[in-house]
Computed example of a mutant assay.
Amino acid sequence: MIMTRIHFLVATATLAFVFSLAYASDPSPLQDFCVAIDEPKAAVFVNGKFCKDPKLASANDFFFSGLNIPGNTSNPVGSFVTPVNVAQLAGLNTLGISLARIDFAPYGLNPPHTHPRATEILVVLEGTLYVGFVTSNPDNKLFTKVLYPGDVFVFPEGLIHFQFNGKKSNAVAFAGLSSQNPGVITIANAVFGSKPPISADVLTKAFQVDKKVIDHLQAQFWWDNN
């Protein structure tokens, strides 16, 4: 009986310690970085947003209109993302969710990219999409699927993924994301279109190609479809 009580007390203390660690952890970041500063006058909120007095809130703070309007896909990649995150819908602040409409021209591509702060779940409304994501090192395993209207696919947080319309007709999809500010890093834009450019010495070694190839890629106009 005494040993049972001791085991119970040890288990309870262990659980309390684990829960204290869980609740003491830092919250997930909602922007790319936050530089510490001692001068309050130069400080900003981590979310980048102030909170309105709840007494002054209205229905319009929780409303967005326009996802019925197709995005302009007449660009080099043939796709356009219409986001609905906290920047477009103030009521999303602190709620941890957002939404996007993605339009694809025939053979349009939403290029390989990542969302550093969100998992994405995609549903196809119109057309057909070839989608996929790549797992992290060292496996770098590719998971792909062809989606039709009504099909759903999920892209885990932070992993590189893409969507491609391989047909002669348009395609439309909607995506839900598990962050009010998921962020997006388009791989080609970040690597070859950074400002200032990444050193060619770094990229030639990283990609094992001639410097002329890197120079050519860095000279391109990297279109942002988001």
Rank of each mutant, 00 (worst) to 15 (best):
F33N: 13
T12K: 12
S178H: 05
L56P: 03
K168M: 11
F164T: 01
T12S: 09
Q88L: 11
Q208M: 13
V84G: 02
H161I: 05
S169V: 11
Y130A: 08
G193C: 05
I187V: 12
G96V: 09
F164G: 00
L15N: 06
F8D: 06
P197D: 03
A42F: 15
V46Y: 12
F19R: 09
D151Y: 07
A200E: 15
Q218C: 02
Q208H: 14
I160K: 12
S169L: 14
K212Q: 12
V124T: 04
V18P: 00
I6G: 00
L56D: 15
K168W: 13
A206Q: 10
V146R: 13
Q163K: 10
D53A: 07
F207G: 01
F162Y: 15
R5W: 15
P149S: 02
V77F: 12
K168N: 14
H115E: 10
N68E: 13
V84C: 03
L89Q: 04
V184C: 08
G132S: 02
A11F: 04
V77R: 09
A43Q: 15
F104M: 03
L203N: 06
T204Y: 10
T14F: 01
K195C: 03
M1F: 10
V209H: 02
F17D: 00
K41L: 09
A42C: 06
M1K: 12
I185P: 01
S74M: 15
V124N: 05
I37R: 14
L30Q: 11
G132E: 02
L15W: 08
N181Q: 10
V152N: 00
V146H: 09
D103K: 04
P54T: 11
W223F: 14
G108S: 07
F153C: 00
Q163L: 01
A59Q: 13
T186S: 12
Y148C: 02
V18H: 02
P27Q: 05
H7I: 08
F153V: 01
G71T: 04
A43Y: 12
A219M: 03
G91V: 01
I69N: 09
D139A: 12
G48L: 05
V124K: 07
A24V: 00
L203D: 02
V202I: 13
E126Y: 13
Q218F: 06
S74R: 15
F62Q: 06
Q218T: 05
S28W: 14
L30Y: 11
Q31W: 14
Q31H: 15
Q218Y: 05
N93M: 06
A11E: 04
A13D: 00
K55V: 12
T135H: 04
Y23F: 15
T14G: 00
F45W: 11
T114M: 09
N93H: 15
L159E: 03
A200K: 14
S28V: 09
G166L: 08
D61C: 01
N137S: 15
